[in-house]
């Protein structure tokens, strides 16, 4: 494109501009990746004190694998991510179809409300859910006379509820984009050929927006897995997820074990990016 079009009667300004763009690019990627690379490198460092290289080791990974707390946290994180992704993908997709294919009163208002969980700072959502769960669980305990060990407490269930509350919006936004790109004539053609709404959805709409739904689900999964703030304020005893566990360790001290956990989390994230890119690529070529 333009960048490759040589021979524009170049002024000094243009040449310098290009050099600056390159320099800025190198700086940006150095800034983005240097901390990550250092973090990974020192996860193999054979020194408890961290920031001084003392030889290669895998012992921090071994320690991590042996930690019961980490194992529980990973299990909790995956459980929350899978359940909340499943619920929010179904509800988000349904919401997206209603928003894109129906006209109804207060549609624009609801449109605005749907964007709120995406743009609102997570700390505000976190404290509002804390207040809400504390109040509603208290009421329910009173109502059913639950006390002591049988009393309802915040835990993984409240975390899942909270994650679904913000993920519905993310899924809906992604799925709406693919619905908007879908020619409405396809649906009309299917109905014209005798398919009712359900068959039209199952045979025509669903296959064509599957890449969008998968993309939305992947986003929801990542957001759920990564969330710290909202989880922190809505969880309770026995509801420690991996970010909560890691945060606790970071606040206590710096140790190479955290580097090892972080490295594994980085790898998981990268895997998710690769999968999401693959899903998108397939979606764009099949239509």
């Amino acid at each position: 494109m333009t960048g490759h079009r040589g021979g524009i009667p170049g002024s000094k300004l243009l040449r310098w501009g290009k050099r600056l763009l390159w320099a800025n690019m190198f700086f940006s990627f150095f800034f983005l990746y240097a901390p990550i690379i250092i973090l990974v490198a020192f996860s193999f460092n054979d020194s408890r004190l961290g920031a001084r290289w003392a030889g290669f080791t895998l012992k921090w990974y071994g320690q991590m694998m042996e930690s019961e707390a980490i194992r529980v946290a990973v299990r909790n994180s995956l459980f929350v991510a899978f359940v909340s992704t499943a619920i929010s993908t179904v509800l988000g997709t349904m919401t997206a179809i209603a928003m894109e294919r129906f006209r109804f009163p207060f549609r624009r208002t609801y449109d605005g409300i749907l964007y709120l969980p995406v743009i609102i700072p997570d700390i505000v959502m976190a404290i509002s859910l804390l207040a809400f769960f504390s109040l509603s669980l208290g009421w329910m305990n009173n109502l059913f006379g639950l006390q002591g060990n049988s009393a309802l407490r915040p835990g993984l269930t409240t975390v899942i509820i909270a994650h679904v509350a913000f993920n519905i919006s993310f899924v809906a936004i992604v799925v709406r984009t693919s619905l908007r790109e879908l020619d409405p004539n396809f649906e009309e053609a299917a109905q014209d050929l005798g398919a009712n709404e359900w068959i039209t959805f199952r045979r025509i709409i669903l296959p064509l927006i599957t890449p969008g739904i998968l993309g939305g689900a992947l986003l929801a999964f990542t957001l759920s897995l990564d969330d710290f703030v909202i989880t922190f304020f809505t969880t309770g005893p026995g509801g420690t997820t991996l970010p909560i566990e890691v945060f606790g360790r970071i606040r206590r001290s710096i140790s190479p074990e955290i580097n090892a956990i972080s490295t594994v989390m980085l790898l998981a994230s990268m895997l998710l990016v690769v999968v999401s890119q693959f899903v998108q690529r397939r979606g764009s070529t099949s239509v």
């Binding site: 020619d183 009309e188 053609a189 109905q191 014209d192 009712n196 296959p207 064509l208 239509v287």
Partner: peptide, 20 residues
């Protein structure tokens, strides 16, 4: 009557052939 209960068929301007 919804479209799927009418004995008429349509040829669309952009054809609307199902891509999948």
């Amino acid at each position: 009557l919804p479209p799927f209960k009418r004995n008429v068929n349509t040829v669309f301007q952009n054809y609307a052939l199902f891509p999948h």
